[in-house]
Design a protein around this nucleic acid. Structure first.
Lengths: 219, 219
DNA sequence: CCAATATCAGGGGATGTCCTGATATATTTC
DNA sequence: GAAATATATCAGGACATCCCCTGATATTGG
C-alpha cells in the first residue's frame, strides 16, 4: 500500500511541524510539502499532487483557506481536503463543505481525533467533529422544512463581506466610503442589508460574526 | 543531569501536542503537564513546580498569558517562562518581559529556533527572536535619550484595557456604560485617555491595536 | 503629598442609525 | 425571452450617539 502523500497548510511554522509530527506516527502517511498561505497551498498542491491537504482556515493575507479549498478542489477534484480550524462556527462549516472540503476539525481537538479524521477522509467519507455533525444535520432538516436551499442560505455578497470586514475592523461609515470611493449612504445601505441577512442588530454582533469567520486578520 | 520539567500552555490541544512532540526530540526535556488557559496554567504550575513554562499569549477567556505570567513569576520566581505567540508586537514584548518572561518567540518560527530559545532560557539568559531583540534595543536607547522610564511607558490601566477590549469588539459607548454600570461620560473619558496614551485617533486603529495584543478573543 | 486612576458633567458639531424610497445592472427562474 | 430576484448604487430626514473640548471630585499608592 502506497503511503498517503500529504500537504500541510498553516501560517504558523510550529503548528505545521506539530501536525507533521503527529501524522508521522502513522506509518502510512507522508508529509511531502508545507505551505504558509492559500496561494502557496495551491502552488504546492499543483506541483506535488497530494492525496490529502490539511488546511488551516484563517490565514493572512489574500487567499484564505476557504478560497484556496475551492480553487484546489476545482483543479484537483480527487484530493481530499481536511480543514483544521480554530473556530467552531456553523456558517463557516457550511461554506467550507460547499467549497469541497470533506472534513472539519478543531485545533482544540484531541490528537486521536485528528488521526481519525484523516483516516475517515482518506476513505472518501466526510469527517466532522461531533457537535458540527449534529448542527449540520439539524440545520439541514430545519431548512428542508422551511423549503430553503442550502446554497442560497443567507450568503453575503462579496461586496457585503468586504464592507463587513471594514466595519468589524472599526472603520467608520465615512472612512469606508472614502476607501471604496462610494457614498456614505451606500455603505449604510450595505450595512443594513448585512444586518438583515445575519439577523444581527448591534455593531458588536457584527464584529463577533466577522471574528468567527476569520475575516479579521492582522495586516 | 535531571531532565527539565516543562509545562505547555496553549488553548489549542493540537498546538500543545505539536510543541510536546517537538520538545520530546530533546532527551533532557520532559513535558509534565499541559494547560489550556491562564487559570489552569497557574494551578498546574503551583502543583507541578515546573522548571520551564511555554506559554501562549492569546487565550480566552479571563486570565490571559500576560497576567498568568505575572502571577506565575510572583509565586515561582525560579520558573522560566518562554512566550510562544502569534503576533509580532513591540509593546506586547515590553509588557511580557516586564511581567517576568525570559523569552519571546513567534509561532511562525522554525523548529530549531524554538529549541534554541528553550535552551537559552534554561541557561538563565533571555531569548528574543532577532527582530524583537533589535527593536527592543532601539526602543530602549531612544527612551534613554528622551529620558523616559520603561516601567511607566504608556501602560494602560486594567480598567482602560477592559474598556479598550469592549470598544474593539464593537460595543458602543452606551453599551459599555450599561455593561459596567457607569456613565457614558466615564466611558468617553477612558476612551480619550486610551487614545492619548497610545497616540491613536481613529476607532479602527484601536481595533488593530487590540487585535495585535490578542485582546480580541472569541467568547 | 503628588501622580495616576476612576468617576462624572456640559456643550457643540460630526457621525451613525433607521426609516422610506429610487435606479441600473446582473443573475436566476419560469 | 420575459419576469422575478439580487446586487450595488444613492438620497432625505429625524433622532441618537459619538467625538472632543474643558473642567471637576474622590480614591489610591508610592
Amino acid at each position: 500500500m502506497r503511503s498517503v502523500r500529504t500537504l500541510v497548510v498553516d501560517d504558523h511554522a510550529i503548528v505545521r511541524t506539530g501536525v507533521k509530527l503527529l501524522l508521522s506516527k502513522q506509518t502510512n502517511i507522508e508529509v511531502i510539502a508545507e505551505a504558509a498561505d492559500g496561494r502557496e497551498a495551491i502552488e504546492k498542491a499543483l506541483s506535488f499532487q497530494p492525496d490529502l491537504v490539511i488546511m488551516d482556515l484563517s490565514m493572512p493575507p489574500g487567499t484564505n483557506g476557504l478560497e484556496a479549498t475551492r480553487e484546489l478542489k476545482q483543479s484537483l477534484p480527487d484530493t481530499h481536503v481536511l480543514i483544521l480550524t480554530m473556530h467552531d462556527d456553523e456558517n463557516e462549516l457550511f461554506r467550507v463543505l460547499q467549497a469541497g472540503a470533506s472534513g472539519y476539525i478543531l485545533k482544540n481537538a484531541l490528537d486521536s481525533e485528528l488521526l481519525t479524521a484523516v483516516k475517515t477522509v482518506l476513505e472518501g467519507r466526510a469527517y466532522l467533529y461531533p457537535s458540527a455533525a449534529k448542527s449540520l444535520v439539524e440545520e439541514f432538516s430545519s431548512r428542508v422544512k422551511r423549503g430553503e436551499d442550502l446554497s442560497t442560505y443567507k450568503r453575503l455578497s462579496s461586496r457585503e463581506e468586504e464592507i463587513l470586514t471594514y466595519i468589524a475592523k472599526g472603520y467608520s461609515n465615512k472612512e469606508i466610503a472614502d476607501l471604496l470611493c462610494i457614498s456614505v449612504k451606500t455603505v449604510e445601505s450595505h450595512k443594513s442589508k448585512i444586518m438583515d441577512k445575519l439577523s444581527l442588530h448591534k455593531r458588536h454582533e457584527l464584529v463577533a460574526y466577522a471574528m468567527k469567520k476569520g475575516l479579521l486578520t492582522l495586516d
